[in-house]
Design a protein around this nucleic acid. Structure first.
Lengths: 334, 334
DNA sequence: GAGCGCCGTCGAAGCGCTTCGACGGGGGAA
DNA sequence: TTCCCCCGTCGAAGCGCTTCGACGGCGCTC
């Protein structure tokens, strides 16, 4: 193994000079730097990560905690993960993958052993058990998702409330006056997952603001449930002309169910969804939708962490604005 | 930060004794060990990962390289990743996540800086550019998937050839005499991805062995392509009564297409697939299928690495036997 | 009863890097 | 011309852990 002393000897300087040439933490003359770089290249030198971590008390590794739970759309998690890794690499950091299964103990372990410098935690619940720990940890962290009490934490996510509103505004702008929200499975609300409730809030507020009749229906993630919800919605609101869907797996079955009940999409019924673009686009009737900006959230969380590691203060909440993509499933009220 | 010397002082022993009590590399009296453990608990001691890595030249971290490419079923990748992490933790190791985008340079970096002790590489191509590097690296690696020339490497995967055969045997056992294979998109074969070709080999060999008329059809991953393939298959083989599908996204569209052409599944046509169980089970007609045993492959790759790290020789090839789950889509030939 | 060997523990020497204080020399200010 | 300061570099001291050789003391053998 070639080490820093080898490089130093080869370049005719001291090890500390090599270190400074590499880190830029002290001025080094252009000429010396070039010579050092040349030696590094010739010898194929790579600084030993452990030694570096020990001496500098920086591992240049971030922890990423991913959820395993059902009801979470896996491809979106993967997108997050990939964008986190990519963004981390831009800052010369690597990413350690943790599963939620490891729980608090896992977080504490990687933090306390100095394996990682900072943590990114996905899928934060409203009353997440990990919050006190994250607040107490001596390492910075960023949460993807918003807990009920975000004080002392740094959070980032799509602005789900605004997303709920935007769906309604879109439908309202098309003249729809009676709409429904088909939401996530009941257990998601019971678990008090922030984003599901926020969609409801935005939906309800915007409907009220626009003088629109509306109702909200949680829905299990299977076709039969979708059919039931569709029937119930039509029974309770025969004048229904707009639906917002926040439940990936039932998007297509729900449209099928409405059509089976005699409603054409978008002829009789306009549908918007909050779901990945890839899903919205491949449904039989491509659906007007708001996507989870997974890549942006991932990259954003890394940027926040880097700032925190650098000592720059960051906002407690970062809400990414929803963007609605209009597709074939919405149209003005007949 | 509490360090090993603090523990040593608290327990009234030397630091080396604490180290040995922790690692078990030298005999320590039961009494001393208990005292040390008690001190560790009381002080909340956690060994510093960097210091440990430096002194022992073991980081206890594995690298996992995940693919990003299109045509790869994302949830399966995620399953791999999760099972790798879980298995690694059982051996007191962590997992560093790398994207394929980082390429050879990324592999070399994490290996040469001693950030990781060993590597797991997913989605290996038949003529993968990373093979020479992996062979040359001074750290052990395991490939998920089989390259054309696996000499000097350790590989693990589902036995796709046997999977192709098993599908055919199943259909043959039900009396089917004319069958087709609907395969992956053409580019997958062009790219020379091993597993797709192996399914074809197994399929063809078993069909021949059983005196069955067969043909193979690559298929793009969209419903329109599925329809075309269905039509073509029926035109070329009007007596067709069995189909093997190795292409996740078109499984359902293909069944729809056949039914639209007047063939009932499984009444007129038996269908088997090689795809995740989760997909096979949720199709309108649940499909008899062979799943990618993602969890087994992930856990298996970790076990192989641990053996290699421990100096135990391991087989060059580990082929996991396919398991066929019979569902509603296959039935004896009328 | 003397000697041998083994068990359990200690001390010290690194592992490879960063960082801090120090220092020589050259340029600018007075 | 002298003094000061700053730029660029060096040397040495750790960072916290593992590991190797050494060494007492006990039990056993002969």
């Amino acid at each position: 193994m070639v080490k820093i002393t080898d490089v130093a000897r080869h370049a005719g300087v001291s090890p500390s000079t090599v270190s400074y040439a590499l880190s830029g933490k002290r001025p080094i003359s252009e000429e010396t730097r070039q010579r050092v770089e040349e030696s590094i290249r010739e010898l194929g030198y790579r600084p030993h990560a452990g030694a570096r971590a020990l001496a500098s008390s920086r591992s240049n590794v971030l922890a990423l905690v991913v959820p395993l739970r059902t009801g979470i759309h896996v491809p979106v998690v993967m997108q997050f993960a990939v964008s986190v890794v990519t963004a981390a690499r831009r800052h010369d950091h690597d990413v350690l993958l943790l599963t939620q299964e490891e729980g608090e103990e896992g977080l504490r372990r990687v933090a306390d052993t100095a394996l990682v410098d900072a943590l990114i935690v996905m899928d934060v619940q409203l009353h997440d058990g990990r919050l006190p720990l994250l607040r107490a940890l001596d390492r910075p962290s960023v949460l993807i998702g918003f807990p009920a009490e975000p004080a002392g934490l740094t959070c980032i996510d799509l602005d789900f409330k605004a997303a709920g509103e935007l769906c309604v505004e879109h439908l309202a702008g098309l003249g729809h006056r009676v709409i429904g929200l088909v939401g996530s499975p009941p257990e998601v609300y019971v678990r008090e997952t922030g984003f599901a409730q926020r969609v409801v809030q935005g939906f309800t507020a915007a409907a009220h603001r626009n003088g629109i009749a509306s109702s909200v229906h949680p829905c299990e993630a299977d076709p039969a449930a979708a059919r039931q919800v569709a029937e119930r919605l039509l029974r309770e609101r025969p004048a229904l002309t707009g639906v917002v869907v926040h439940n990936e797996p039932v998007l297509e079955p729900l449209i099928d169910a409405f059509e089976a009940l005699g409603l054409r999409v978008p002829g009789d019924l306009s549908v918007t969804a909050i779901c990945p673009d890839e899903l919205a686009a491949r449904v039989r009737v491509p659906v007007t939708s708001i996507a989870i900006p997974a890549a942006e959230v991932g990259a954003g969380s890394v940027e926040l962490l880097m700032k925190k590691l650098g000592g720059t203060p960051v906002p407690q909440a970062t809400l990414l604005p929803p963007r609605l993509t209009v597709r074939a499933s919405t149209r003005p009220r007949p």
